[in-house]
Computed example of a mutant assay.
Amino acid sequence: MKTEIKLIDYLSTRRSIPAFQMGEPGPSKSEVEEMLKLASRVPDHGKLAPWRFIVYRGEARRRLSEELAKIAMGDKPDLAEDMVKVENTRLTRAPVVIAVVSRAAPHVKIPEWEQLMSAGAVCLNLVMAANAYGFASNWLSEWYAFDERAHGILGVNAGEKVAGFIHIGTPTVPPTERPRPELAEIVTWIGDDA
């Protein structure tokens, strides 16, 4: 039985678990589908749904990781052995990896920038949906998010961009806190009561 927490408590303690610190079990197909429904509930000016999902599960993650590693090692043939291992395990660190793909495009009314931000909101909603189901999650965008040679391997179409890869699994270690910015460093007040 899952423990319910208030949203304010969740937001005040939300942390990511590194993908390499996740293990089985991962979410079931039906849990992933529910997470994707929740992730889709974002601001979306014009109701364009300018994003889509690609879900990587099972053995396909290993095969795709090996294909990505070939690109990385082709670019850097002298890659250190520990980095070769990193490249060979890109999509196998967590039981489920979901690509959030931006389909932002010119529109007569909706700026592409708004469409891109909607894809970012989908990423964060997916992270929170995974947490709500009791799983750890991590939003990553590594080199293969930006390399068009990798896009064909990963199912990303021409003209699309990867907003992020959301890794989802069971944490193998407890989350740790990290320094957060002080409000005085990131907030500008404008107005009479500032």
Rank of each mutant, 00 (worst) to 15 (best):
T3L: 12
V100C: 07
A194T: 10
F165G: 06
V156W: 03
G164K: 05
W143R: 09
R41S: 10
T13Y: 00
N131Y: 04
W139C: 08
F135Q: 04
R14Q: 06
P181T: 12
K85C: 06
P77A: 12
R149D: 07
R62M: 06
A163P: 01
E59D: 10
E67N: 13
E66M: 07
K161Y: 02
V86C: 04
L154F: 04
F53E: 10
N138E: 08
R62D: 09
E66D: 12
C123Y: 01
W113E: 14
G46I: 08
A80F: 00
Q21T: 09
Y144I: 03
L183Q: 12
T13I: 07
A121G: 04
L116V: 14
G74H: 07
N157L: 03
T170W: 03
G74C: 07
G26W: 00
V86I: 12
G164H: 02
L36G: 14
P174D: 14
I110C: 11
A158D: 13
R178F: 02
K2Y: 08
R52C: 01
F146D: 12
S12L: 12
G23D: 14
P111D: 08
R90G: 01
W51D: 00
L48E: 11
A150C: 07
R15V: 01
L124D: 08
Y56W: 11
V86L: 11
N157P: 00
A130E: 05
F53Y: 15
P171S: 11
E24W: 03
A69Q: 09
L64Q: 13
D192H: 13
E59M: 04
A121S: 10
P171N: 12
V97D: 09
P27N: 09
L48A: 11
L79Q: 15
A129Q: 07
G164Y: 01
A104S: 15
L124C: 03
M117C: 10
F135N: 01
S12R: 13
A129M: 05
I110F: 04
H45K: 06
E34R: 14
A49Y: 09
P181H: 13
E112Q: 15
N88S: 11
E87R: 14
P43W: 09
S30A: 12
K70M: 02
D82P: 00
W189T: 11
A39G: 02
P111S: 05
H151T: 03
K6Y: 08
I110V: 15
I54W: 10
I71M: 13
S30T: 11
E31G: 00
M1W: 11
W143D: 02
G159S: 05
S28C: 05
N125S: 13
